[in-house]
Amino acid sequence: MSLFTCPFCGSRNLEEFSFHKTLPNVAGGAFEEIYLRRDAPSHSDEHWQHRYGCRAWLRVQRNPSSGEVFAVELLTGTKP
């Protein structure tokens, strides 16, 4: 897995992107949001930034056991 497809910039080298955190996907309030994670080996829902590119905040869904990228889309709604 060495390429990500930014919705604005197209296919770019992974090193241009920086991972920020996983999305909690846990019901609850601020505590769950900040501190708890569902850390499944088959699916990971993440905040990234195209830091050395257009600097857009992205939501990336991946399989952390194979490296496969399911989706890269613009982050909307939640704050990073």
């Binding site: 846990v26 708890l36 994670r37």
Partner: peptide, 18 residues
């Protein structure tokens, strides 16, 4: 390194990323 996977197995979120 599989603590997160155990959380998933038990159905409880943990303060962990892998």
């Amino acid at each position: 390194g599989h603590t997160g996977a155990i959380g998933t197995m038990l159905g409880i979120p943990l303060p962990v990323e892998t």
